[in-house]
Design a protein around this nucleic acid. Structure first.
Lengths: 262, 262
DNA sequence: CCATCTTTGTGCACGCGTTCACAAAGACAT
DNA sequence: ATGTCTTTGTGAACGCGTGCACAAAGATGG
């Protein structure tokens, strides 16, 4: 029982590096766009630009899948779309349940990106009895009492958790016990799962904090160096780390202690 | 003008490795929980377990910030909370705009995680004139015509893009031109930004595809090895890559070509 | 059939991130 | 004051990911 291992530590899955797997959807998206414009072939250079990566990296990524290109020409768009789709497992149907139909859960249910590419929202589950039966995105919400039955009846192996933080771990445990082996977690908590279960997390708060770090660093450098005058951002009121100014201790979430320590 | 560089290639920001920065919010969250329970000190082992990481990694991460621990005892919770908050720039106020108030944008506006830890939703912006003035999460939506003025008046340097894919790049360009230097992108597109602008992307579709890849691999291994009988998941109907079965060619989004190539 | 040109596929080197293992440091009891 | 015990902080080794640079491969034109 490993605690909170987020996603495969270093286990190269069948020869394809994890970093490559993470980029395949990007390539697939770019290729799909080309396919819709009926572009027959594409060079690694062009495709790399569309996907926002280095062309050498892209070629190396594709080399893990096999030699699907033609030297002097490039890659056959349709063929590559098929190969990547197959490699990612998108040629089969993946029923998905979303647990926690609040603002975020409802948004996810309505999100078109789910429906495309083999993913199908099989059920929406919420703990609130008042929600039961209400249709969200055309799908009636079911009560969490029936979670296990829903998972088993639909053969669901991928679960999306969009509950409040406190409910996430219990929901996760029930999903796993019912047979779910892949979880996409939107709740701001570290999930603990048994071996063999994959967890990927999407955490808005963390992403913002990372951006804030770089933003602060940029502001600091800008103040240290001479006034570069790069656009209207230079006149921003970010002067230093000590500008707690107006709203310092407002904490609507019970966070933000920010107290001076001993 | 670098195309589509997602987040700092390898530029170590002021000595703190990028990987460490990405984990600091995790530590901060765990520490905040401890702080609320009035736990005075915590060891690297305990905190690492709470954050779901290796204890050696945690100690090394903290060593980049300085020597804030006491040997034989552990770390002072309050002190660490303060230090990490300061390092991440959370002791100052970060006004944020959300552009694109659809299902997702509205969910983000309502998300409590934004309000906490120094982030403040300064404005909601949408291109639909019918939305203008409507309050979402208590904040009136403003029309995108006023985007530049809103950015400048509020001193916004962090923008969140929750528009459809097609609108993302133009919106991004306008945000950057108006002075935004950090962008959190929820639209399924690769954004092209000038140097000095940070982009982080959150892409549900990509996360799901990565999970599907591992799910497929697990199913394949399970089929190859003898029946392990590990729980009810073993009896799942995922037999092989060729089980396109019932709903093979339903494509509600204009995707999923899945055609056999030449 | 041959020369040329384009583009792939990859060997190689380098740097970052992770993990181990241990010495140094401080708390605590006697 | 001294010894013991806990826990930090870090040197070192290793593995993964990235990018360069080039040889091999095939298309194309004469």
């Amino acid at each position: 029982m490993a605690t909170g291992r987020t996603h495969r530590p270093a286990t190269r899955s069948r020869g394809i590096p994890e970093a490559t797997v993470a980029r395949l959807p990007l390539y697939l998206r770019a290729l799909t766009a080309l396919s819709e414009r009926s572009v027959p072939t594409v060079s690694s250079e062009e495709l790399a630009a569309a996907a926002g990566v280095n062309s050498a990296k892209l070629r190396k990524d594709f080399s893990y899948l096999g030699s699907y290109g033609t030297r002097g020409v490039g890659y056959d768009v349709e063929y590559l779309v098929y190969q990547i789709s197959r490699e990612l497992g998108l040629t089969q149907d993946w029923p998905v349940v979303i647990v926690g139909i609040g603002n975020l859960g409802a948004a996810l249910a309505n999100y078109g990106g789910f429906a495309s590419r083999g993913f199908r929202v099989a059920a929406l589950i919420d703990a609130d009895p008042a929600m039961a039966g209400k249709p969200v995105a055309g799908i009636p919400v079911q009560h969490s009492d029936d979670l296990e039955k829903i998972i088993e009846d639909n053969g669901v192996s991928i679960g999306v958790i969009a509950t409040p933080a406190g409910a996430a771990q219990p929901v996760c445990d029930r999903l796993v016990a019912a047979g779910v082996t892949s979880i996409l977690n939107f709740a701001p908590t570290v999930l603990s799962v048994p071996d063999g279960v994959d967890v990927r997390k999407v955490d808005l708060s963390i992403e913002l904090q990372i951006l804030a770090f770089h933003e602060q660093r940029k502001a600091g450098e800008e103040a240290a160096a001479g006034s570069d005058g790069a656009g209207p951002a230079a006149a921003r009121g970010v002067s230093g780390p000590a500008s707690s100014s107006t709203s310092a201790d407002q904490g609507p979430d019970g966070d933000v202690p920010a107290v001076m320590p001993a």
